[in-house]
Write a protein that binds this DNA or RNA. Structure first.
Lengths: 243, 243
DNA sequence: ACACTAATGAACACAAATGAACAATTCTTT
DNA sequence: AAAGAATTGTTCATTTGTGTTCATTAGTGT
């Protein structure tokens, strides 16, 4: 086995198991513990894994928990957007929410509304909605990123409901449409879009005029809400924070 | 368990429970109290938690009081039970978990297993499973208590899967069966019980010989796991924490 | 063919992590 | 306030993992 193969194997094993000892890795790769230690040192330097006394753990793992503090990125913009978006929600509305952090910023403003029902594929979104007593329905599905439910189960759940409004975000937007990073996310959003009377795309200005991996058609999107003035005419209703 | 994993576990537990004693943490992590004290000292220095006499509390005390309150009781018992229960889970098992906090105490011990898949109707349960990289499927449904998914949607999801083992808790147990506080919870648990080869009921000793609103038949329950010796013969396999 | 380099394993002194024991400290109860 | 209980910090021993050095092997370039 070549070194590179071993590195990949180690990374894959760690992705599956979240932590492994040097001994386990040595057994799995047919290399001595000395070699594994050298590998781990290198992979740690390259930030591919996290070295620990006795073995290594996956990195990706602990980025998530401090959710409240974590996504300080574009926080102000997201709140601005939420303050605009909340004006489109009326008492008694039924809503689809995607699992994005931008849409989550709407939740605090929802407590002033009455009789709202939200269907979402975001676990944290559901949790936060539940906390403030909003009538919440969660789609089923497989969990990714500790947060988002995807797959057939999720799509089926979404297709059962027909709602008034769909609020969602994306990775990038341009005149051709909105972009996402995986087909599975696109499927979810298209299913929600299809079964909503109106759709609202929430995207901070940093996402405008960019692309990402896969496109989501904008056909039925009524309104793009963003945080600063835009001049493009993309054939849809564009609203931004005026102040 | 590596030190880093233990640190994360401590922080996660505190995030959920707002305060834990050194003893409880020692049970939960399989480390002696001396080690926990050293950990807490370190985590306090790093401002990740707040050390107190007898244990530790979390720093940002602003999140989800309702869920925490109910759950602060019987912590040590729940962890004891989890330590017994984990022995029944093997690599590659497929599992149903209910949304109880008792079953959640199993999660930290799951990271040492390989190829586990869990289907749950608990949002927090799903979230915690996702964090440690366990393959997780969430049922859909209506959200209650910020945590539990119920209703037809949840039942339908459960009925699609046939698993090896079902782990659950309840409000009370006696010789006639297990009791729950609502019919909807009973429906969920019966659906899971039906589609699992083996079922394990986790109940602290305070729940034994009590009743609650509605009964769940014990027919297919193989094993009751509890935290102290019991003398009753209820015609099922009863296991308790020996030490 | 030759010198050179990368990769690996083996050996070993050193360091980290932990548990156990116990005196000192802090909390609780009366 | 004093006695008793619980928790803590400290020290010590043990286990386990680590980094380093050295020798060997196999591949690379001239």
């Amino acid at each position: 086995m070549f070194p590179i193969e071993r590195y990949n194997l180690i990374i894959n094993l760690l992705e599956e198991k979240s932590s492994m000892t040097v001994k386990e890795l040595s057994l799995a790769t047919n290399a001595t513990t000395a070699t594994i230690r050298r590998d781990l040192e290198k992979l740690d330097r390259e930030k591919a894994i996290k070295r620990t006394h006795g073995g290594a753990v996956r990195l990706n793992n602990d980025i998530d928990p401090p959710f409240n503090l974590r996504d300080s990125e574009k926080e102000a913009e997201k709140i601005k957007i939420a303050r605009v978006a909340i004006k489109f929600i009326n008492d008694g509305d039924t809503l689809f929410f995607d699992s994005s952090t931008t849409v989550m910023r709407l939740i605090p403003f929802l407590s002033s509304k009455n009789g709202i029902t939200v269907i979402t594929n975001g676990i944290k979104t559901a949790f936060e909605l539940g906390k403030i007593g909003v009538n919440t329905i969660c789609t089923g599905g497989e969990l990714t990123n500790c947060n988002t439910l995807i797959g057939l189960e999720a799509i089926n759940a979404i297709e059962k409901y027909h709602v008034d409004k769909f609020f969602f975000s994306c990775r990038a937007v341009n005149e051709l449409g909105a972009y996402e990073s995986s087909t599975q996310l696109v499927e979810i959003k298209q299913a929600m879009n299809k079964n909503a009377k109106e759709s609202y795309l929430l995207a901070d200005s940093g996402k405008l005029n960019k692309t990402a991996f896969i496109r989501l058609n904008l056909n039925k999107i009524d309104t793009l809400i963003t945080d600063s003035q835009v001049d493009y005419d993309w054939g849809l209703n564009v609203i931004w924070d005026k102040k």
